[in-house]
């Protein structure tokens, strides 16, 4: 039996209206349940690739399928988490988490039940009535994650979600994300520029080269699961981080100067 890959990117190029080539002939397949990180220097088109998969922008060339269909038609399978928490400031935590379900017309009692369950899953039940401006950066991101998960997505797309946070909040949220991943088995495409974060989270890392963006290396990460805070202290973790860092540096050194 041939299974459809969860995300299939086939010889995809993306040219912006200004003429610059953001992605050049990128091919990548993500299987169900994989946690794949896109890693690379700025200008490698990693965020662009994520947006193409989400169906928010079309590819210039090549095809992308999500669960075998066009990304724009597969949006209900996916949730997108942005770099900033993008919470609506006029809505409470609870109302922000329920936003997606509300837009999709889910009945009020069902909505409330799902939102409450999700809030307790990410430990936010005490903040349900707060407005975003009362929350710290880490808390806002937690709300953003809850909002993405409440619609029970099969695929999670994350665009440098923890880049603006301090290291301790980031580590804690990474661990939490893996805990939820173990429970809910999504397929994840995760954009980051942090090697340590990518190694800690991923089952596979895709290193992209810049100008134009293309796949340079694919590195499977075979650290044992479940990964916890202790994983970061292991020698195997250090080795992987060193290995990936070298690859990243070689990609940067080989790249032509940014225009």
């Amino acid at each position: 039996m041939v299974t459809t890959p969860e995300i299939a990117i086939d010889q995809v190029s993306k040219q912006f209206r200004g003429g610059s080539l953001a992605l050049d002939n990128v091919s990548l397949t993500v299987e169900k349940g994989e946690f794949v990180s896109l890693l690379g220097p700025s200008g490698c088109g990693k965020s662009t690739l994520l947006r193409l998969v989400s169906g928010l922008t079309p590819a210039t060339q090549g095809t992308i399928t999500v669960n075998g269909i066009e990304p724009a038609n597969a949006r209900e399978l996916m949730s997108f988490i942005f770099q900033d928490a993008t919470l609506l400031p006029w809505r409470t935590v609870e109302q922000n988490v329920g936003l997606g379900l509300e837009l999709e017309g889910v009945a009020r009692p069902v909505l409330e039940k799902s939102v409450n369950a999700m809030l307790s899953l990410v430990g936010l039940e005490n903040l349900a009535q707060r407005y975003p401006r009362h929350l710290s950066g880490g808390m806002k991101m937690r709300v953003s994650i809850a909002r993405a998960l409440v619609s029970r997505p099969r695929i999670l797309l994350l665009d440098e979600p923890f880049a603006a946070l301090d290291e301790m909040s980031r580590d804690r949220l990474n661990e939490e994300l893996l805990r939820l991943y173990a429970e809910q088995h999504w397929t994840v495409l995760f954009v980051t520029h942090s090697v340590a974060e990518a190694v800690f989270l991923s089952s596979r890392i895709v290193v992209l080269a810049p100008h134009p963006g293309r796949v340079a290396h694919v590195v499977p990460i075979d650290l044992p699961w479940p990964r916890t805070a202790d994983t970061r202290l292991s020698d195997a973790f250090d080795e992987q981080v060193t290995h990936v860092s070298r690859l990243l540096r070689s990609v940067q050194a080989a790249a032509p100067e940014a225009r």
Binding site: S54, S79, F80, F82
Partner: peptide, 17 residues
């Protein structure tokens, strides 16, 4: 902000929404 619009589009929000 553009990200907010993207968020709404991901949930297939109508122009009225």
């Amino acid at each position: 902000e553009e990200n907010f619009l993207h968020l709404f589009l991901m949930h297939k929000a109508t122009p009225v929404q």
